[in-house]
Design a protein around this nucleic acid. Sequence first.
DNA 1: AATAGCAACAACCGCATCTCA
DNA 2: ATGAGATGCGGTTGTTGCTAT
Length: 384
Amino acid sequence: MGRHSCCYKQKLRKGLWSPEEDEKLIRHITKFGHGCWSSVPKLAGLQRCGKSCRLRWINYLRPDLKRGTFSQQEENLIIELHSVLGNRWSQIAAQLPGRTDNEIKNLWNSSIKKKLKQRGIDPNTHKPISEVESEERGASASNKNNDKSSEGADEPTHDKSVETHKPKLPVVENNCTELTTIPPSTDEFFLDRFVSSHESSPSCKPCDFPGYFSFLSVNPNTSLYLNANSMSSEMIPAVYPSMSSAILTATTHTKPSIILPHNINPSIGSFDVNGHNMELQSNNSFFENNAFSWGPESIKSEIRAMEGDPEDMIKWSEYVQTPFLFGTTVQNQTAQQGMYCETKPETQFTTEGLSTNWHQQPSQPSDIYNKHFQRLSATYGQFS
DNA sequence: AATAGCAACAACCGCATCTCA
DNA sequence: ATGAGATGCGGTTGTTGCTAT
């Protein structure tokens, strides 16, 4: 695939977009919505492939893009999210309203990676480089030892799954001893390994429980307890002091997880998810923080709402690609919208659907159109 | 002033997944 | 059930602008 079939049929433009092309695309999408991307270039009068149009719209022309330099808060959040999600840029971008996956990816590769390295942190594993190196040495030594006996041994170098943190998706461990506490001097950007017993435990198959939660705390001083009827209580010591937001996200096994910040309320209490009693305990005061207004009551009411109306019941599986954030770095409405938005804004964009579905600033088509041209003039004013 | 080196970012490419006939 | 087309995602490349020499 890669290149659309349409690209072969006719000679299509490549490379940077001209202001005229942008204008055509904006005009078309604001008027008609994008519909089927492959038909957009034809309808908009562009000599581009649909894929290129889509990318241009998503990464540059969308009216809800923030642009501009990333704040320190945003950078920190990206680092934190990366430690959990790995190179899942789209999921990371979902937590940063107005930012695109491409933008975040570029920032990561051009800037954040270097900063982390300067701090002695391995950007892939988020562990101290010295620790990573010693692990690699150990691994290569054991590889040598097992060389002849191991069947289908993996490449001796980086396991890609390690690089992308896939094994580190939020999971829970019954046995706390496997989790490592990062010393305060080096803990700034670390979220240590999440170790799963659910993955391997025959008594707790991820797919058995659609409302399954993994509760994770993020501070060495914090312990969270998860108690669902279908599972045993679990204690999750955590190691992420700098986490400044709470994330409800999903794993690849359709297991949504909540990543909780360190200052979480000591008595969050219990609530029901699909009849399963969920008990959440902690020992600090995140939910008392004024900056965090989407607290446990909101969670409960969300869940009550989910229970109340079967029509509105959202299957967790629908969240898999749509993690939510409720915290201090994005507007609370973002998280709440996230709870109820099944489709991504990109697919929601039509002139008819604007008022409710855009992330932050519901606006009329004309507003968006004006905004586009404001941006265009700002962007291209130097050329004209 | 010229230019080499670098950083930032826009865009492309290829693969995986989804959707629908 | 299956295959083709559409879409989404992440890795990579290409271009541009800035800075140092």
